[in-house]
């Protein structure tokens, strides 16, 4: 859905839903997911509808994802780090 203008940026390796991918230093988690071709990042806890980042500035909470095992984190406000595990957030979070 998105394409990178410049390919020379410093890369970090992460996994999205278990699949290894790369992103650039300075990317937010939401940007990284969109740049890897993901269409949506979560399903809602109510109807199960698919949702994707909407505002990219921390106000809409559509970018909620699981990061390193912690549910419902705001992907557009968190920068990627080497080795990060990102997972789509399916419905309600769990308590464990």
């Amino acid at each position: 859905m998105l394409r990178r203008l410049l390919e020379e940026g410093q890369r970090v390796r992460l996994t999205i839903d278990g699949k290894p991918v790369t992103a650039c230093v300075g990317d937010s988690v939401a940007a990284a997911m969109l740049s890897c071709g993901l269409r949506y990042c979560r399903t809602t806890p109510i109807s199960g509808e698919k949702r994707a980042p909407y505002c990219m500035m921390g106000v809409c909470f559509e970018c909620l994802v699981t990061i390193d095992g912690i549910n419902n984190r705001q992907g557009c406000l968190i920068e990627v780090r080497e080795g990060m595990r990102i997972d789509t957030q399916l419905g309600r979070r769990t308590v464990e």
């Binding site: 998105l2 940026g9 990317d27 940007a31 949702r51 980042p53 500035m57």
Partner: peptide
């Protein structure tokens, strides 16, 4: 407006500024 693929224009601008990403398609 809740469909994936719909976002604010400002969100696209943020993707451009922060990551140099532009829509493809």
């Amino acid at each position: 407006w809740t469909l994936p693929g719909v976002m604010t224009a400002g969100a696209l601008q943020t993707l451009l500024k922060s990551s140099g990403l532009v829509p493809d398609g």
